[in-house]
């Protein structure tokens, strides 16, 4: 049974590995929409940033997973069972036809788990996408305006200016915010537990406790304290490694930039 505990560490790493690029993608799209010159699109981008950022943290997670699940089931219900006439909301119950259940009632256990994990990934991506959008939007605005004017003077189109001048330069301005976001993302992963995923928090609680009917063969007392200590150390290690990695990335991105960091690097190499 312990291998499930070790497996859950991979779940956390997998979640990070999927969520980070997807959220960055969402963020990029959001930021692009927010600075668009087409008003409805700009409203959409800014609205996305504002709504997700304004709502308190875990309430959003709790709400979104159920809401997404019900939205999926409702859509499938409309498509798969058009003959169904009863209302979907009957008093306190949410009822869809059998064929629209997600995952299907007959599906094996792992499908249920994967579906739950999938919902969690979407939720994390949407929430962190909004934060990333905000950071990238700020990064885009921080690029010196003279750079863009120069590009225009060279006869570049708006699209060319965006992709060739703005995007390569914005990262160095966005990186402090993004690295902060990455740290927050790491620290938000235990919330998987709240979403009903059997993650490290779940297993630490299960395996550590002594009067659990499932694991009576473990001849130890209440070890939950030690399991959680291990998790604490795991997260501290992740933080430390990220700090070092991001520091290096910042150094690389600062190279040749018109910022204080870039200037420092230039002096170091010329001196």
């Amino acid at each position: 049974m312990h291998w499930l505990f070790y497996l859950s560490f991979f779940k956390v790493l997998l979640l990070l590995a999927i969520t980070a690029p997807v959220a960055l993608g969402f963020g990029f799209l959001g930021a692009m929409a927010a600075r668009s010159h087409f008003p409805p699109l700009a409203m959409l981008g800014k609205g996305y940033i504002a709504i997700v950022r304004g709502v308190p943290d875990i309430a959003f997670f709790m709400f979104f997973v159920i809401a997404l699940d019900q939205a999926f089931e409702w859509t499938r219900h409309k498509i798969l069972c058009p003959e169904w006439t009863d209302p979907v909301r009957q008093g306190n119950d949410f009822i869809v036809c059998q064929a629209a259940k997600l995952p299907l009632g007959t599906a094996p256990e792992w499908v249920h788990e994967t579906y739950g994990f999938f919902l969690a990934v979407i939720t994390f991506s949407i929430v962190f996408g909004a934060f990333a959008a905000n950071v990238l939007f700020g990064g885009m605005r921080a690029v010196p305006h003279a750079q863009l004017e120069t590009a225009e003077a060279y006869g570049m189109t708006r699209r060319q200016t965006f992709w060739r001048i703005l995007v390569p330069q914005m990262w160095v301005y966005a990186l402090p915010g993004l690295s902060n976001l990455w740290m927050v993302l790491i620290k938000a992963t235990p919330l998987l537990f709240l979403l009903g995923i059997e993650d490290i928090v779940y297993w630490a609680r299960e395996l550590g406790s002594f009067k659990n009917p499932k694991f009576t063969q473990y001849p130890h007392g209440d070890w939950r304290m030690w399991y959680f200590l291990a998790l604490l150390v795991f997260y501290l290690g992740m933080t430390r490694v990220s700090e070092i990695g991001l520091e290096r990335l910042m150094r690389r991105l600062s190279h040749g930039q018109a910022t204080a960091g870039g200037e420092l690097l230039r002096k170091e190499t010329t001196a």
Partner: peptide, 11 residues
């Protein structure tokens, strides 16, 4: 600051 508050509560 380096560890999740959630884990801190549990521990």
């Amino acid at each position: 600051r380096g560890s999740p508050l959630f884990i801190q509560f549990f521990f």
